[in-house]
Amino acid sequence: MDASSELLQPLSHLDHLEAESIGILREVAACFRHPVLMYSIGKDSSVLIHLLKKAFAPAPPPMPLLHVDTGWKFREMITFRDKRVAEEGLELIVHINQDGLREGVGPVSHGASVHVDVMKVTALKQALDKYGFDAAIGGARRDEEKSRAKERVFSFRSAQHRWDPRNQRPEFWNLYNTRIAPGESVRVFPLSNWTELDVWRYIRREHIPVVALYFAAERPVVDRDGVLLMVDDERFPLHEGERPLLRKVRFRSLGCYPLTIAEPSEADTLDKIIEETRLNRRSERSGRLLDNTAGTSMEQKKREGHF
């Protein structure tokens, strides 16, 4: 072996994950005509954008970003989104379900289930159809949830955007079957093998900007049966006698603000977040109200087209 090879260190776990994800992103660009990267503004999306830039440098990323806005995201998320996209010079498409907006569908008036169905799942399908995307890249990880643990990296969707968990394409080695018929599509998950802890360690290593809501700070919250919810704007319906109190909280996972549970925390730096995540005894999506309504809720939503 030559001298240069002796200097090489074995790749770290994060290096492995990074290389695997970049390989997946390049595969999407090479095999699909009209791919898109789903940008949800969260930490996983932030990692995806970072990887997207690396995968194609020095060229700009060969695909746009798509944000499906429900109208109920934290205000800080939208500000962060617009700032990041401008900084990076990325092309962003924002889609809102106009029918839902007209009918005033929201988590407060219609309940979580209808809101997610109309403003997220239906909106997503509308956007994919409208722009004719044949591959949609998402930041979902297999460690998040049981049905995700069974999903492929390149996950086939019918022309109706449905997932059939019983009939998935076998994925051998890292050979992905990217063939689809017109109208069909795939959802691609480059972070499949990352854990929550991997994501935070990578964010720290790479200095990736994330929304401040992930860091503990004094925020106005109400306590409902032990569940802390943040009052982000005047649309939040306060119950009789309920008054928002300032508590030091952070979010592990970001969605629509009335559906996302704040957690009391002192973790206001990346190091503290990583330490908290390492010791945390609760799974990440326990902070999403909808996920816990039925044992197989996520599988059901995914069959219907949810990410």
């Binding site: 090879s5 990074e18 290389a19 390049r26 690396k54």
Partner: peptide, 15 residues
């Protein structure tokens, strides 16, 4: 070029 730009040498497993 590694994932962070110009490098002298790259090894198996790297993009």
């Amino acid at each position: 070029l590694g994932v962070d730009g110009d490098i002298a040498c790259a090894q198996s497993g790297q993009a």
